[in-house]
């Protein structure tokens, strides 16, 4: 399975993401600098890591979404490619128009950095197929702007199309309907604020994120 991790100035979870992907797929992902206008050939998945791309200037993810490589990522997604965005990566995917809604300042105004309990809201995606619907996971969050905003119409659509991937048990940021992660209409783009790549080794404090990467690797093996 061929994967790539996009690196922006200010990305800081790119190497964690690479470790998690290599652990699941047995192959080192290619690290792609934001100024590259093209992605490597034959990719199965592009990951957009957490961090503070471009210093969170203007809005989190807004400048990164306009980087040359993002045009290629959007084209890849529009061709049906799999894209995973975590934390700042989720913000970038929203700003790039690949996922709906918006991510605002946390309702409590503080940076939240701790383990949270997530619930798997759907197992019907290449990212969540190794989980059971309703399964509880412990995964860390670390963000200041993770308050997912969806108006009533969008929320109804997300629910109707089973596109809410994860919800928080104890909402840390004020997100609409406790939403922690959402899928695109074709279910091939996932954005989530919590960090599954920081929960893939007991040394890190837990392994509940491993199944997400195993799901992706399994999907690639069967050519989903």
């Amino acid at each position: 399975m061929k994967t790539a991790v996009i690196v922006f100035p200010g990305s800081n979870c790119d190497r964690d993401m690479a470790v998690a992907l290599e652990q699941a797929t047995g192959r080192k992902p290619q690290m792609v600098w934001h100024k590259d206008a093209a992605l490597p050939q034959g990719l199965d998945l592009v990951a957009i890591p957490g961090g503070f791309s471009f210093g969170d200037y203007l809005r989190c993810g807004a400048i990164a979404a306009q980087a040359p490589v993002m045009r290629a990522v959007v084209a890849f997604a529009n061709r049906g490619g799999h894209v995973l965005g975590v934390c700042n990566g989720f913000q970038v995917l929203i700003e790039a128009g690949l996922l709906p809604g918006a991510l605002m300042r946390n309702a409590g105004l503080t940076f939240v950095c701790r383990d949270v309990t997530l619930e798997v809201a759907t197992a019907d995606s290449v990212f969540t197929s190794a989980y059971a619907r309703g399964q509880a996971l412990t995964v860390p969050v670390a963000h200041h702007d993770g308050n997912y905003v969806a108006d009533a119409a969008l929320l109804e659509r997300l629910r109707g199309e089973d596109r809410i991937a994860f919800t928080y048990r104890d909402n840390p940021n004020g997100s609409t309907a406790d939403i922690a992660g959402v899928l695109s209409g074709n279910r091939r783009v996932l954005g989530m604020m919590p960090h599954p790549e920081r929960a893939v080794d007991p040394v890190l404090g837990g392994t509940d994120g491993t199944a997400l990467f195993d799901s992706i690797a399994a999907a690639a093996r069967i050519g989903a």
Binding site: L58, R59, A62, Q66, E95, P100, G101, V149
Partner: peptide, 8 residues
């Protein structure tokens, strides 16, 4: 396209 996020 950039300066405002017209969703919010």
């Amino acid at each position: 396209k950039l300066l405002a996020n017209t969703v919010i």
